[in-house]
Design a binder for these strands. Sequence first.
DNA 1: AGCGTTTACTTTAACGATGACTTTTGATTA
DNA 2: TAATCAAAAGTCATCGTTAAAGTAAACGCT
Lengths: 348, 348
Amino acid sequence: MRKSSQVTQSKIAKLLGISTVTVSKALRNHPDISPETIQRVKRLANELGYTPDLIARALSSRRSNIIGVVLPEIDHTFFAGVMKGIYSVAEENHYQIVLTVSREDDQREVENLQTLAAMRVDGILISISQKTQDVQIFRKIRERKIPVVFFDRIPDDNGFSSVVVNDREAAFQAVQYALDQGFTRIVHLGGLQHISIARDRAAGYWDALHAAGMKENDGCVIPCGFSEEDGYLAFKQMMQTQPRADAVFTVNDPVAIGVYDAAKETGLRIPEDIGVIGFSDNIISRYLSPPLTTISQPAQEIGRRSVLLLLEALQRPDRQSPRQEVVPARLIVRESCLSKKRMETTGS
Amino acid sequence: MRKSSQVTQSKIAKLLGISTVTVSKALRNHPDISPETIQRVKRLANELGYTPDLIARALSSRRSNIIGVVLPEIDHTFFAGVMKGIYSVAEENHYQIVLTVSREDDQREVENLQTLAAMRVDGILISISQKTQDVQIFRKIRERKIPVVFFDRIPDDNGFSSVVVNDREAAFQAVQYALDQGFTRIVHLGGLQHISIARDRAAGYWDALHAAGMKENDGCVIPCGFSEEDGYLAFKQMMQTQPRADAVFTVNDPVAIGVYDAAKETGLRIPEDIGVIGFSDNIISRYLSPPLTTISQPAQEIGRRSVLLLLEALQRPDRQSPRQEVVPARLIVRESCLSKKRMETTGS
DNA sequence: AGCGTTTACTTTAACGATGACTTTTGATTA
DNA sequence: TAATCAAAAGTCATCGTTAAAGTAAACGCT
């Protein structure tokens, strides 16, 4: 025989001489129950310190009020910002968050998704790992009637709802700004090209070059990872293969930081010898010297919108067409890519 | 009638002509079941794509395999690091994490704890909010037989297990270093003194002054919040009340960053005019100019140890004495508090 | 043969709550 | 007056899984 000292609905029911269902309904202000009974139940529940058992409720009602989240990494400024947005909206709507981390590993990502499904989360928010190629698992989740919303890093299959930044356009602006400042041999350290955001940013880069009347061989995209280390290495590589480069546009800020390190080591001054523009506005960026010109992504806003999109899908479970939302990123001009022209003219 | 397309144990049972309990046991490799049956069950489970329903399991077994976490803030480097450590150990032990955020509000903190208890988490990890004074809620949680481990910011009541950094000692080292470098009028921007870590760091500060033969009026602790903004304001205040100060030791790095801003604004050079030492080694700190001398706290290690302590408590639920663990922090010397003596002598 | 022990299952009851349906009571209406 | 209806409960079944206890056959041992 299992015994439990917990205060349950049936204890309250017994004490008041009513049925457990009445208690359940009373606690939820169900119209079936008279105001007086509701009062009596709630008062006693309060006195006894009753708390609903959310697990039991979830099993019975088939709604867990939990949203599952899968993140590639947890200690990245951008994702931390997204999470902040996610939490604020989730809290307002009385949802709890179960956060899992794939650590950029597609296998772990699959496991995370399976666990979340097994926990019966009501919906899932995910930004996919660097390695993710296979979309199967997402289809399976959808078959299970669990709505999924992707954010920032989305799969190629566009049959899903998603919230992204206007990467291409923002990249275009960044590169155009560099051109305006008089830089002419701009190289793009471009991330892994099978990731949507990396492709989009590279596309924006080419857009800007083309718009300026430049051709394929006036530009160069060097693929690399997304970390400082990767940026450091890619920049070193670039100095070998593209010695005439006068500016770099990086796929994200950590890579730009790697570039700072490599440049410092080589004795190159920023922006006098080499201009740098990043992407994502890491908190660090404004404290670098020189402060990094970069693209600011509204991380919290992305998180907030993702939850809202998911909540909408939860409200009407009939299949609805997926929706893609785009939130605007914008260029933050600081000092790492300041006018070459002006510097030269004022300098000599 | 509710229908469900989910694959459950009873479906498998029906198909194989055995009882659901046999299926349940087979899937868990229970010795009651013959190897062949186990095989048959597992194979079919696999074919059908069975996944256990963790909610149902939790209800029945009275273990959720979930650890609840309450954090004051999510987008702080330190906490992000702690979370990384928490996740790695939790994952290894097949626990999921439900993370809630108090946003430094004690009321929200209470709600978070109640929700976690209602979710029947197996245990709770918490770093308390700035405002938290009342310990009642923690007692209640303990009465519910949910083990709690505090980390970093712990309550005064030391009847609980906790993982902290040797704040006092580390602060001592930091201040001693400043003294060694020739700074003599060191002010401490000291955080809210009802928070354990702030008190400990202040104590270490005084220890160092006393060890150097200084008295109460050779030092000064200015209380402030924990944000950049707070540091900025506190420093401005300090310049009014303590105009002769030649160094500041701050309760954490964000406050130090506020000091940087204020100093820059006032035209004070670091470390020539004013030395600065922080606490917590924010990622930003090494990118500041000058790079900030600070105390490095092993955030991931704290997270890891906290989970381990909790897991231990979960293994033997008989009441055991609480345990306090201390992990060492250490001084990272950079350039924000370099030798005044040497600078002066080489300078003139 | 008789008795205890294994082996491999099955049966029965939860776990705590909720959805769907039914019943009771009294008031309202045709 | 009988039929109708709404309010305020109650009953029953179920969510999917597991703990505890029960059972039947096979085995081993004296």
